[in-house]
Computed example of a mutant assay.
Amino acid sequence: MTDSGIPVVFIHGLWLHASSWAPWLELFRENGYQPLAPGWPGIPDTVELARADPESIADKGIDDVTRHYAAVIDTLPRKPIIIGHSFGGMIAEKLLGENEGVAAIAIDAAQIKGVLPVPLSSLRATLPVFKNPANRHRAVSLTAEEFRYSFGNAVSPEESDELHRQWTIPAPGKPLFEAATANFSPHSPAAVHTENEERGPLLLIMGGQDHTVPEVITKSTLKQYRGSSAVTDLVEFPDRGHSLTVDSGWRAVADACLDWLRKQNL
């Protein structure tokens, strides 16, 4: 990687392969950044290989993923901007809280320790994992119907099915179990250093139709940062669901990220 632009590390969430960031990488590269989208630890390089070997990602937890991306960041010529979706958004928040990046954008980020609301839609969206306690140590796939509820509810059924076919991979259950018990664990890996005064700016983005991370979770997350004077902004896309980074409306979300970064002189 050359040193001609700020690195941008994209972090995917559960059930989407890192290659789903491809349009974002192209757009950010065109805008002068040096983007990269490494997969979670253990995930093969393609969707097909990941589906063929689900155990390669099984039993990976929040700390495993955070350390993995911190190691990636250590190889870069300068501190990056970190952009994450869903659990990738939580990881982005954790890394920013540890001063690993110059800024972070958390898109429909999974709930962190201290966030109390547990909407019914979130419970239904994660039922494929929680219905079996043994899934804590397994990798779990979503059916097209389950993906439609959890991700694709704000797009057409046809688009949802195509997104499922193109991008979904098995995902470890462990991070969901860790997040679900975060408020009962004094040393939860879902804890974020939200009171860090020295961190870079943070943008939270929420989809108003998101079933997996409803807006009440993101608004509650914003409140967790009230103890820090560092920049923390919120942008809402009222008509968007959890698929907002990969569906046909991805460009509006990406443009909002670019606009915010320019306002931060980044």
Rank of each mutant, 00 (worst) to 15 (best):
R165I: 12
R165M: 14
R165A: 15
Q166P: 01
Q166H: 01
Q166Y: 10
Q166E: 09
W167V: 04
W167G: 01
W167E: 03
W167Y: 10
T168H: 05
T168M: 08
T168P: 00
T168F: 01
I169T: 07
I169V: 14
P170M: 06
P170W: 04
P170A: 12
A171I: 00
P172R: 09
P172C: 04
P172V: 04
G173R: 04
G173Y: 02
K174R: 15
K174T: 09
P175C: 11
P175W: 04
P175V: 06
P175F: 04
P175R: 05
L176P: 05
L176M: 01
L176A: 07
F177I: 13
F177L: 12
E178S: 05
E178D: 06
A179M: 13
A179V: 15
A179C: 13
A179W: 08
A180S: 11
A180L: 07
T181N: 14
T181E: 14
T181A: 14
T181D: 13
A182I: 04
A182Q: 06
A182T: 08
A182D: 02
A182S: 05
N183G: 09
N183H: 12
F184H: 11
F184A: 08
F184C: 13
S185T: 14
S185R: 13
P186K: 09
P186G: 06
P186R: 10
P186H: 05
P186Q: 05
P186D: 12
H187V: 12
H187Y: 08
S188H: 15
S188P: 08
S188F: 13
S188G: 11
P189A: 03
P189G: 00
P189F: 05
P189V: 09
A190F: 13
A190Y: 02
A190L: 11
A190G: 02
A190V: 11
A190T: 11
A191E: 07
A191C: 10
V192T: 11
V192W: 03
V192Q: 03
V192G: 05
V192N: 10
H193Y: 04
T194R: 03
T194Y: 08
T194D: 06
E195L: 10
E195W: 06
E195Y: 01
N196G: 10
N196P: 02
N196E: 13
N196L: 11
N196Q: 06
N196F: 08
N196K: 07
E197A: 15
E197I: 10
E198D: 11
E198P: 09
E198A: 15
R199V: 05
R199E: 09
R199P: 01
R199G: 03
P201C: 04
L202Y: 07
L203A: 10
L203K: 02
L203G: 02
L203N: 02
L204D: 01
L204Q: 07
L204P: 00
L204N: 06
I205W: 03
I205R: 02
I205L: 15
I205Y: 01
M206V: 15
M206P: 07
M206N: 10
G207N: 09
G207I: 06
Q209W: 11
Q209M: 14
D210V: 06
H211L: 08
H211G: 00
V213S: 04
V213K: 00
E215Y: 14
E215Q: 14
E215S: 15
V216N: 13
V216Q: 14
V216D: 02
V216A: 13
